[in-house]
Design a protein around this nucleic acid. Structure first.
Lengths: 207, 207
DNA sequence: TGACTTGGTTAACGGTGTTAAGTAACATAG
DNA sequence: CTATGTTACTTAACACCGTTAACCAAGTCA
């Protein structure tokens, strides 16, 4: 059965080739310039060849983003050992999340900012979720951190699940706005980032 | 000079016709289905006729959004008389902002969520700002409210400008997420909205 | 009446995602 | 060794999109 193996290897090889080319285009020219045809041209295949490895443009982009956000969840997970105090961990986590988004704007955009195109067939509604699966993991980190905080009586007695979602909303807000509205007169970016983090953390802190 | 007048009247009349058709398509079929060709077809003109009244698709969409967001700033401005207490006014303002976004998702999307297409010529960089001019006004309301709050010693001594921006980021975050990620397991939407507002208001409140 | 402006048209360019049909190489069964 | 079927891939095409250039007809004005 070595032959089927080799086939499979070659197949995943081309798949990786596609992903590499796509990521290159994504970070170089931005999200809206990432087209099937350009990817295909770059790897010297016909555009339709991509559809043998990805069902959609959406599928391709999500695979890309998922790969990238795996790094973020890794960062966030290591954070737990790095900063045992849940309060400072919460701060650091928010900081890293925002920094990560700003460092990978063209991944952050399709993953969290842009509305996913209407999924006509509900069979693969999972996928758009699984593309956020790492996003979900990140949200899980946040919830655990908050849960730790309330256990340690450093945070108010809130439902960690909804508090995590609210916190995520806030830091997503500043991240997405800074990405999409670069021209806006933000003043000192660090100041508004700090203010946002301050607000959510102070809002949760026990008094 | 009555002739030039009539011409101008007819011109603005068609302009309004375009805007009406476009808004109809926007709210009926969503943002991504709003195309020049479809608008043209609906009013029985050729697609290029639109370009005599709007320089761009972007221009058309922004005009639409601006019209709509004028209502929001009106709501927010009346809020000042309705609720003199800056603290409850802050709450109410956030609530209305979020509700407004959720009630007009296809206006909120292009106005604040989607990245504006790269403006090649910097001559009309103003326009993308002026499309947000009502957004800026709304932000102004928020800042004034916060400034009132610190004057009345109900809020901490913060820079109202950056605090307003941070608060905006937070409520924009939950608004945009609820719009774009409808499929996400948000649980009770009202709960996470309330949590977000609580967090930002409590973060600002004097203790 | 002839020139000019205005509001509109048709045709076209260059791009997009995606599908259907066809082809050439290759592995396997008889 | 040949026939069959699978696999990877291509070409052609569909149905769109925003936008520009060239043209045209009607109305205004000297």
């Amino acid at each position: 059965m070595g032959v089927k193996d080799r086939r499979a290897r070659q197949k995943t090889l081309l798949r990786q080739q596609i992903l590499d080319a796509a990521r290159d285009l994504l970070v170089r020219d931005g999200y809206e310039k990432l087209s099937m045809r350009r990817v295909a041209e770059r790897i010297d295949y016909s555009p339709t060849a991509i559809y043998l490895h990805f069902t959609d443009r959406q599928d391709l982009v999500f695979s890309l983003c998922d790969e990238t956000f795996a790094k973020l969840v890794h960062e966030l997970e290591t954070l737990a050992q790095e900063f045992p105090d849940p309060l400072v961990r919460l701060r650091k986590g928010c900081e890293r999340y925002i920094a990560f988004g700003l460092n990978h704007p063209d991944h952050y955009l399709p993953a969290f900012v842009l509305p996913p195109p209407p999924d006509l067939d509900p069979t693969r509604k999972q996928e758009s979720m699984s593309a956020e699966s790492n996003g979900l993991k990140a949200l899980g980190c946040l919830r655990d951190c908050i849960a730790d905080g309330v256990r340690a009586r450093k945070l108010r007695k809130v439902d960690p699940e909804v508090a995590a979602r609210a916190t995520w909303a806030a830091i997503h807000g500043i991240t997405s706005l800074l990405i999409t509205h670069k021209g806006f007169p933000w003043g000192e970016r660090k100041a508004v980032i700090a203010a946002t983090i301050d607000a959510v953390v102070d809002g949760l802190r026990r008094r």
